[in-house]
Design a protein around this nucleic acid. Structure first.
Lengths: 229, 229
DNA sequence: TTTAATGGTGTAATTTTCACACCTTATATT
DNA sequence: AATATAAGGTGTGAAAATTACACCATTAAA
């Protein structure tokens, strides 16, 4: 095996599941494609990996080009390798996900012309997506849902300061079920990684709630010997 | 984008983590390479994906060619895409794992000449492996360890009929810690998916233990609404 | 002042987890 | 036959975690 290996440009791609939380709803970032195949369809932000970049680097670059978002802490969740998943040839794609705050984010503007625009869409009633992106979405969303039970991923979706009601609403949105308010609060606070702030919620026309911060240092200390990734 | 896509032969590979359990020890299947680079080194069974096969199909074929083992229920666990992970060019590899019974298995004979032989090696004190296979092993083993807590993967490693002591020994081997006998038994039996057989252990020079079977149907019923994958 | 909306709190029952030790049974040995 | 060896098999009590459940407090707007 001393032959020269071929290039991997355009046989290998990344697709990104970017989750956000807004107005009590879990959202996902989609692009409107400006390229055949599936021109004008909605799709996950994704494109081809280049010869000289790692998968993680490619994921960063591609997401930036298609949505303007940069340096998100993305993680790989699955690789999709069915022979005919791409209509134009054999393309294997690696799914990445990230959970981010969309709060007050300026409009998302694609850098590259491969996408016309990038929009946040509720994870409920998603339209048909290009390629096998619906399957990719279901796979990734399922993993995130399970991961929520033993990883502090929810805080990435909230503003730095948040109320317990917001936090609970987020859990309910991800798990798609109602939780008991008293039990939820008791449990969250019992972990010891939420820092209660003096500051209170503002601009609401009812009793203002206490604000909390997620204390990542405390979290690491508490869970240093437990589950990874 | 109407250009023709290139072939993926030899830019894309599969590496397999095949776990077995024997003599109270957790083992992994390694091959001795018969090809440069890393000729004569120990490595995970792995090779290039072909243009016209899915990843899952490739994993089956490759494992068969290198070890003679066929149709194992392998699952993907991670894709490794560092630019320089392969000394001869850009090769992205997908890690797959399976847990199997090695009991009384005939010798494993590689079909292809890429491997000289296939051997079971204890997961403790693994030697240096070819490529980044040590990293791949660590990544996969970590995931399996965590998965053990909420998936019935241990039974794939045991003979069809097994004793509770064997089962406990296996858990201890995977988790690398001692468990309490009474609590372990109580918990396992409480799940309700172990079927107690009339038959007893044979050929031991002490009191024979009851044999049990894992009842996959009951398991599915009990956990139908819980965690996937 | 009243209304509307959410904030915030405690207890008791149940279930799960955890720590812990001794007698029983089967075979091999003398 | 007696004994030694090696593992099989069993229960209880304390502590912790989970679950179900309802009402008063606070704020701003009407």
């Amino acid at each position: 095996m001393e032959e020269k290996l071929p290039t991997i440009d355009s046989v290998f791609s990344i697709d990104c599941l970017i989750f956000g939380f807004d107005a009590g709803e879990l959202k996902i970032l989609l692009i409107e494609r400006n390229e055949e195949p599936f021109k004008d369809w909605l799709a996950l932000p994704g494109y081809f990996v280049k010869q000289e970049e790692s998968l993680d680097d490619a994921a960063d670059r591609i997401l930036y080009e298609l949505t303007g978002l940069r340096d998100l802490p993305m993680k790989q969740f699955h690789t999709f390798g069915e022979v005919n998943r791409h209509p134009q040839g054999r393309v294997i794609t690696v799914g990445y996900y990230a959970l981010i705050r969309i709060n007050g984010q300026k409009e998302l503007r694609p850098i590259s012309h491969y996408a016309k625009k990038a929009i946040w869409h509720s994870v409920n009633n998603l339209p048909r997506l290009a390629f096998d992106h619906t399957e990719i979405f279901n796979n990734g969303f399922g993993k995130i849902r399970r991961r929520l039970n033993y990883q502090p991923i929810a805080f990435d979706l909230l503003p730095e300061k948040f109320t317990l009601t917001q936090l609970q609403g987020l859990y309910e949105a991800i798990l798609n079920k109602k939780l008991d308010k008293r039990n939820f609060r008791k449990k969250m606070l019992s972990y010891g990684f939420l820092k209660e702030l003096v500051e209170k919620q503002k601009g609401v026309s009812y009793r203002a709630a206490k604000l909390y911060k997620f204390d990542r240092r405390k979290y690491s200390k508490i869970f240093q010997n437990e589950m990874g990734v």
